[in-house]
């Protein structure tokens, strides 16, 4: 359903404040989990956006990896460590890929879109695995990044990286909320529901689909860049189908009710995964599967519908 209350800057500022404050009380392992969830959540948000237009992208990891490798290659091989340049490069590279692929894929729907996006992401996976100079399946490590010439030392680095990730994620979510209230964002649901009628009203469903693909690619590239910075490492698994499947999982788990929902969803997934791994090292995937099944059966609109329901009541 179309939401008219996406435009709430104060809400996003409050979320950022909470993230920053909570960040300093959480144990460092949990905060790091949150940090990677913020980065991954941006990719899941990209998947959720496309779902609004009826497009299920099973290869969103492609842009995640492109963002990550852009940061990694510039920092490790070209020696550019300034975080601002690195992240701009990450977004730029993934957006250009989004534009090229968007021109190609925006005409496809349903299973054809899902399979083609999966195929393209697996081509990149294949290339990265074969690239010995990029560490093949192991990937490679990335040196610490700098902020306008200042390289945070070991002691404060985790804090600085966390703040960077939180601030940029919330800004990206806010920008996405803006996009959702624009004409291109509003027409996504119309594309999913009745494309022919949309044509008959004078709009181009293909253009609407193209724009959502590009927006999602930019978000995912930023997510990949932030993850590369956070973990100091990239590897081809970022664009493997299992990773992309995880983003689809989170997008479904979270629902489409809010731009922040996929970020929360990703964090919950990481938590479940961590505890499931702890509890049942050999059966954690089964636990994840059962969670997924429960969400689909009990909350078809995703976890966010719990909050929506309360607000309506």
């Amino acid at each position: 359903m179309m939401k008219t209350d996406f435009r709430r800057e104060p809400l996003y500022i409050a979320i950022l404040a909470v993230l920053l404050i909570v960040g300093f009380f959480l144990p460092s392992w949990l905060r790091f989990l949150l940090q990677t969830a913020l980065a991954g959540g941006l990719v899941a948000l990209g998947v959720a956006l496309q779902m609004r237009a009826g497009l299920v992208n099973f290869g969103q990891g492609l842009y995640y990896a492109l963002g990550g490798y852009a940061v990694g290659m510039l920092a490790a091989q070209a020696g550019i460590t300034d975080i601002f340049i690195l992240l701009i490069a990450a977004v730029l590279v993934s957006t250009v890929a989004g534009i090229v692929l968007g021109l190609l894929l925006s005409r496809y729907r349903e299973i054809f879109y899902a399979m083609l996006s999966l195929a393209v992401s697996m081509i990149l996976y294949g290339l990265l695995v074969k690239a010995a100079w990029l560490g093949s399946t192991d990937g490679f490590n990335i040196p610490p990044v700098s902020y306008l010439g200042w390289t945070p030392d070991r002691a404060v680095r985790p804090d600085i990286y966390y703040v960077t990730t939180a601030v940029l994620t919330v800004i990206a979510c806010l920008a996405t909320a803006r996009y959702l209230t624009s004409g291109a964002g509003m027409l996504c649901e119309a594309v999913a529901e009745n494309e022919i009628r949309l044509e008959y009203l004078g709009a181009s469903p293909r253009k609407v689909a193209f724009i959502v693909i590009v927006v999602a690619s930019a978000l995912s590239g930023l997510g990949g860049g932030l993850l590369a910075m956070s973990t100091g490492h990239v590897d081809p698994l970022m664009t493997n189908w299992t990773t992309s499947g995880g983003f689809v999982f989170v997008a479904l788990l979270a629902g489409r009710g809010s731009t922040i929902a996929p970020v929360i969803g990703f964090f919950l997934l990481e938590l479940v995964r961590t505890y499931a791994l702890d509890l049942a090292p050999n059966a954690w995937q089964m636990i994840l599967g059962l969670v997924m099944l429960a969400v689909i059966l009990l909350l078809p609109e995703g976890l966010w519908s719990l909050i929506e329901r309360r607000r309506k009541a």
Partner: peptide
């Protein structure tokens, strides 16, 4: 031929936004 998941007003809004496409309205 309408958009069944949306409300009546939202359907009309879609029609208005769609009409704005082509004039850079998106």
């Amino acid at each position: 031929q309408i958009f069944p998941q949306l409300t009546v007003l939202e359907n009309v809004m879609i029609a208005e936004i769609a009409a704005a496409d082509g004039k850079g309205g998106l």
